[in-house]
């Protein structure tokens, strides 16, 4: 998935970010959307939403955020922006399942019979999936960044072996390079992805 990361540096401080969201500047909304939309979709899918339902969840979450953000008071002690977003998204997922009459398909639906997300059990279950979606989102962003940093052949070796399941020999034959070099490229890119993901995690942890 191609994503723009050129505005990444603008997310350095969460207070600045949220302040800009509160100002409802359209470019900041775009930035919010570009940074969180696929994560919201991914989380909704993990919770059991179909593709269509997950897109409804994204639309309603974005609509709600527009509406609630002016009244949102950022407080480091109370929680991060991501927690705030989680609560909105979670409530929209429950709404979406209620509308579709398929509440029973919601993962862990038995603990979501009541509207509020209160008990520790249901909170832990859902936040676990949210955290998973978050980790995957960081990895996804890291891949995009690393792809821009390395030579295309290096990245392709990683992609073909890691994602497409080709053997190192098949890739080596295709590029007419040594098999060991394919492994080196794969490991190099993987390590870079992990390093960038860790860096992003550190940057985002203040949000």
């Amino acid at each position: 998935m191609a994503k723009e990361n050129k505005n990444y540096d603008q997310l350095n401080t969460s207070i600045t970010f949220i302040g800009k969201l509160k100002d409802e500047k359209e470019d900041m909304w775009s930035l919010f959307y570009d940074n969180y939309a696929s994560m919201i979709i991914n989380f909704a899918r993990k919770r059991g939403c179909s593709k269509e339902l997950s897109e409804d969840v994204l639309q309603e979450t974005a609509m709600a955020l527009f509406r609630y953000m002016p009244n949102f008071e950022y407080d480091r002690e109370k929680g991060k922006f991501r927690s705030f977003l989680f609560k909105i998204t979670e409530s929209k997922i429950i709404d979406a399942f209620r509308r579709s009459g398929k509440l029973s398909l919601l993962k862990n639906s038995e603990i979501f019979d009541s509207r509020a997300v209160n008990s520790e059990e249901e909170f832990a279950s859902s936040t676990h999936l949210w955290d998973q979606a978050w980790e995957e989102e960081l990895l996804s962003k890291a891949v995009v960044i690393v792809r821009q940093k390395v030579q295309s052949k290096t990245f392709n070796c990683f992609e073909k072996v890691f994602l497409k399941g080709l053997t190192a020999k098949e890739v080596a034959d295709e590029y007419r390079i040594n098999t060991n070099l394919v492994y080196q490229h794969k490991h190099k890119v993987f390590k870079m992805v992990v390093d960038v993901a860790k860096k992003l995690l550190k940057e985002y942890n203040n949000q």
């Binding site: 998935m1 696929s38 979709i41 991914n42 899918r45 593709k51 998973q132 980790e135 995957e136 989102e137 990895l139 996804s140 891949v143 890691f162 994602l163 993987f190 992805v193 992990v194 993901a197």
Partner: peptide, 15 residues
């Protein structure tokens, strides 16, 4: 991490 990265790249194709 490797497994998660694999899941990520697969699920991104669905978006």
């Amino acid at each position: 991490t490797s497994a998660k990265l694999h899941t990520t790249l697969i699920s991104n194709k669905e978006i």
